[in-house]
Design a protein around this nucleic acid. Structure first.
Lengths: 290, 290
DNA sequence: ACAGTTGTGAAAAATTTATCACAAGCAGAG
DNA sequence: CTCTGCTTGTGATAAATTTTTCACAACTGT
């Protein structure tokens, strides 16, 4: 754990003096494009560095590894650790709690989920989704299932402020077909569906698809069956140390979308927000923010 | 953004639809820690992904490579190329998007919020809150406001599975006093309140406090006025580049609490979850998870 | 019941690694 | 200049590992 994290690169440099001429040449070649060159075959590395095969074998052992495969494994481990975000190195999140405390374990998992989700997202698809959802000329339907209806509602609540002409549909209610009676060509449906995927949601998507609506799907890494109908599919990592899946990553994506859409058409949104604030002031529902 | 270089990661994602279940599982495992996992042996990769050796061989060929070694060589080439570029430090979350893209800016802000929130949380207070909320001998009330009612509902939904004897209250409804008629000494009230703080919520908290209930408050960094009545106060950072505040950090905390509470009394929870699954199976509301 | 997918166990093929003996090369000492 | 000790490459080979493929049975969802 708390070791002085010596990379293999460091190790090689520190031993550079103990190496012979050909070995040094090899070592420098390894460092030259690190760590890729060390991950090929021994023979390839030898050729690449311009030294002989036995020289490679000898040096690797001098470095303290039992053989070339062991050296490679170490390189791979290092690569794996390196790719994990610099943030992840951050010792613990709640410093007052031990690293095995659920606060730290859970947060680790969520950060990792965020990292993976974001690294796999296509910004163009994301932008396109935002434009669709923000387009006031299209009616907007927001659909959530048993678990996801809170996310759907959260999006709905904010979109209500940003634009008119939208409907919130819950697939867990039996009345959802009524809402979809008026779906037209070009309308937009935002569907939330994570495992276990709901039959109702799939049916709804099929119906909307037949009517020519564009479907934006927010789902998990295994992707709801709806994704075959979806114009845009944004998938999220959701696995955490819990009996349930995590909605945090999806929440992040939803909020990011809200922020992006809002700035697409800020002039109109601004006015709507101000009106809303006025109305709240009048109803005295909220305290003045201090 | 029609970049000439398609990464292998991109390739895998684009072919994701043509892959079968096991192959997809494998593909996701490769992506999970990319590219390190693809640089080990075929056998190791198979084991790591939980699929069989032939599955790996089959998928690699589906991706268009002649064999596993060729696939590895491609990965190494990509790694080599990536390290060479001056902007090798991928300080962005969505690497395909520029760092000023909202996806990266927003995520940066949320991660920072999480970091600050967690670093300021008192693990003992957190644990104590979990014990209170998980204590079946106390009636549990969960209270959300206009913005936060989705969070409250999310917590409520999961707590419903974990334990009996709980009530969901929305302060935006006029009927909330009815729910609180029966509050007794020792009952627990979880209150969500972020700016702009709601008068109704404060009134509700005062009433509950008079009746001897213990209040657990989830609020923002400026803390709702309810905090003077609260037994435990967990405050969150919520500022993001948007016209609204972020609920993601609070969502993280809520999910962590759910995970912690669930494991406090796993035996009982387990049974309740299984019963619930049975009921879902019978109603055929959900598809079998594949 | 069917078509497609997946894992198993095995074995063959291919590749890679590790070594060896030996000769060539090189540098410094005498 | 020659001797000496050390390093290095060569080519070969044995050992180990890895890759590839196969047939078949079990399983999946439709």
């Amino acid at each position: 754990m708390g070791e002085a994290t010596q990379t293999i690169s460091d190790l090689i440099q520190s031993k550079l003096d103990d190496l012979t001429r050909a070995e040094r040449q090899l070592a420098l070649s390894v460092l030259q494009n690190y760590p890729a060159s060390g991950l090929g075959t021994l023979t390839a590395l030898a050729q690449n560095a311009g030294v002989s095969v036995p020289t490679v074998a000898r040096m690797v052992q001098k470095l303290g590894y039992k053989g070339y495969p062991e050296f490679q494994a170490a390189l791979r481990e290092e690569l794996k650790a390196k790719v994990k975000t610099p943030i992840a190195k951050h010792e613990t999140w709640a410093e007052a709690a031990p690293s095995e405390h659920i606060l730290n374990r859970f947060t680790d998992a969520v950060i990792e989920n965020i990292r993976l989700t974001l690294s796999q997202i296509d910004p163009d698809a994301f932008d396109q989704a935002c434009r669709l959802i923000g387009d006031e000329t299209r009616h907007l339907y927001i659909v959530g299932g048993r678990i996801t209806h809170t996310l759907a509602e959260y999006l709905f609540m904010h979109m209500q402020v940003i634009r008119p002409n939208l409907t919130h549909v819950q697939t867990t209610s039996n009345t959802w077909p009524h809402y979809l009676l008026n779906v037209q060509e070009g309308d937009v449906i935002v569907v939330f569906d994570v495992r276990r995927y709901e039959n109702n949601t799939l049916k709804l998507a099929e119906m909307a698809d037949k009517r020519g609506a564009k479907i934006v799907l927010l789902t998990d890494q295994w992707r709801s069956p709806v994704h075959q109908l979806a114009h845009i599919c944004l998938s999220n990592r959701i696995v955490v140390p819990s009996a349930w899946d995590s909605a945090t990553t999806i929440m992040l994506l939803v909020e990011t979308m809200i922020s992006a859409i809002q700035s697409l058409n800020w002039e109109a949104t601004k006015e709507r927000v101000e009106n809303l604030e006025d109305m709240f002031d009048q109803t005295k529902l909220f305290r003045k923010f201090t």
